[in-house]
Design a protein around this nucleic acid. Structure first.
Lengths: 109, 109
DNA sequence: TTCAATAGTTCGATAATCTTGAACTACCGA
DNA sequence: TCGGTAGTTCAAGATTATCGAACTATTGAA
């Protein structure tokens, strides 16, 4: 048996850690994909930019998990990740939603 | 004459850079204070945590400026900083407002 | 005009953090 | 039990942050 994932309680999630997690282009992209579709594993074509090394992906998912943004569950050999949308929206109303909406028009720079 | 400040056009501001700038506790605090009161200089008691070294403060204001969050203007010997609220809200509707609101209930960690 | 004080910037070195290849663990199916 | 797949951990090199010290600009007074 593998070590289980640790998820912070929603009340222990800090705004800074959420913003920090979302400030990285790769992690923002992951969150956008998770928000669009259903939960999916790390290697799922929808989850993360494909050309990124596994260890880097693993690290980014860990940051997202520890920031309280995603929930990870083992399903056999893979890990299924899902966005903790509704919990987060209760704690920080509108924050995730407005960021996700804004991330669409974020073409320049 | 001192080198003038460079501010990005609002359309060149990226969501990542905004989130990155706000992910730091010191910078979030600065933005909160600027949002609360009027524009003020770096050494203004309202602007930044007082115990922080000048060079570090200067760095944080630079990050905020380059991220497009604040506008800085020289007034004689001091620099007056102000939040680019309305511009940013046009580009990323609700993002700054919801973050500022959320930052109040952000007690735990 | 000269001088001291104030406000902030720049530089450089140390400290902390991120990225990634390599090795490893866990689980599934044949 | 063996091979393949999915993901984690470790360690080292590359980035980035922090902060003291030296510097620049501006103001106000003598």
């Amino acid at each position: 048996m593998q070590r289980p994932f640790v998820h912070p309680a929603v009340d222990d999630v800090s705004l800074e850690s959420v913003l920090y997690a979302l400030a990285d282009p790769t992690r923002l992209e992951i969150v956008k994909r998770l928000a669009g579709g259903a939960a999916c594993g790390m290697n799922c074509s929808m989850a993360a930019p494909a050309d990124l090394p596994k260890s880097t992906q693993s690290h980014h998912f860990q940051v997202l998990r520890e920031a309280g943004l995603i929930r990870s569950e083992r399903r056999g050999t893979e890990v299924v990740n899902s966005l903790r949308c509704s919990e987060l929206d209760k704690r920080f109303p509108g924050v995730i939603a407005s960021i996700l909406k804004a991330s669409d028009k974020n073409k320049k720079k």
